[in-house]
Amino acid sequence: MRKMKFLFVVVTLLLSATIGYAQDETNKVDMADTMRSNGRIYVVVAVVVLILIGLILYLVRLDRKITKMEREK
């Protein structure tokens, strides 16, 4: 339970840290600003996160299978 609390604190700290920054420097380096302004960047993030979910589910399944095998022996 204490570990869960610790996890919760870590996550909230990380999320709160993301909010604080605003864009302050606007020099002429070519960045993907249009991609950000029309929201297409979220498409990329969605795809990448989906792949990550798939990989992690695969790992969790493997973990469970091995745990089962360990119990059987």
Binding site: L7, V10, V11, Y21, I41, V45, V48, V49, L52, D63
Partner: peptide, 26 residues
Amino acid sequence: WWKILCVVLLFYTFIAGFLMDVPRLP
């Protein structure tokens, strides 16, 4: 617990890694 931490931090990496502001360097 450390596996959960790993998953949470990985999601944070991917989402914040793409969406957060970075320095503009040539």
